[in-house]
Amino acid sequence: MTEYGLGVGGARRVNTVRLWAGGLATAVVAALVILAGTLLAKGVLGASLLAPGESWRFGGAGMAAYAALAALGALAATGLLQLLLPNTPRPLHFFCWIVGLTVVVATVTPFTQGGPPAAAIATSLINLAAGTTILSLLSKVGSAARPGERRGGHAEPGGRPGN
């Protein structure tokens, strides 16, 4: 949609092309954060991750699955954002709370798996980096998908985007 303002039933319209283009770009960035974090943890620092031994070598199934999971998480978050933007008051606040708490869960979960502490720390930090990347990028994408609103959720006079 390219029009902004109120739609059917008072719901705000959202530029879905801009939203999903930003969501796809975020998915790519999140996957790259996982790849870079895994290479840094395993290759440079020599830290193990919570996975079978050789599955984390570059090009291994574990690394690809981990990166794909981050990308899918970014796409799921984009879907959540599409649901929240036109239908909830203060949608970016709800989005940040939901995704932020999900990042907390992803960050803490490695410590509940019973693996070595160094592996839990490395995996936790990589999850935190990917999660905060998704949160920060998609919160900006959500703002850009509704350019008739400025920070704080109040429409600019005449429905024009704020600075």
Rank of each mutant, 00 (worst) to 15 (best):
E3D: 03
G5H: 12
G5C: 04
L6V: 11
G7V: 14
G7D: 09
V8Y: 04
A11Q: 03
V14E: 03
N15S: 15
N15K: 13
T16Q: 12
T16G: 15
R18C: 08
L19S: 08
W20M: 03
A21F: 07
G22R: 15
L24Y: 05
L24S: 09
A25I: 10
A30R: 00
A30P: 06
A31Y: 11
I34M: 06
L35G: 04
L39S: 06
L40C: 03
A41S: 08
K42V: 12
L45C: 01
L45K: 00
A47V: 05
A47L: 02
S48H: 15
L49A: 04
L50D: 07
L50E: 10
A51T: 01
G53D: 14
E54W: 13
E54H: 10
F58D: 02
G59F: 07
G59I: 14
G62T: 02
M63D: 15
M63A: 13
A64G: 14
A64Q: 13
A68N: 04
A68K: 03
A68M: 00
A68L: 11
L69S: 13
A70D: 05
L72I: 12
L72Y: 14
G73H: 00
L75S: 14
L75Y: 06
L75R: 11
L75E: 12
G79P: 13
L80P: 08
L81H: 02
L85S: 07
P86N: 04
N87A: 08
N87E: 11
T88Q: 06
T88C: 03
R90I: 12
R90S: 04
P91T: 05
C96A: 09
W97L: 12
W97P: 00
V99H: 00
V104I: 15
V105Q: 02
V105F: 15
V108W: 03
P110T: 06
P110Y: 05
G114R: 06
P116K: 08
P117A: 12
A120E: 01
A120Q: 09
A122R: 04
I126H: 10
N127Y: 00
N127G: 04
N127K: 00
A129H: 09
A130T: 09
G131S: 01
G131Y: 00
T132G: 10
T133W: 03
S136T: 07
S136C: 13
S136M: 11
S136V: 15
K140P: 03
V141Q: 03
S143R: 09
G148M: 05
G152T: 01
G152L: 06
H154P: 10
E156C: 07
E156N: 08
P157D: 08
P157C: 01
G158Q: 14
G158T: 14
R160V: 15
N163I: 07
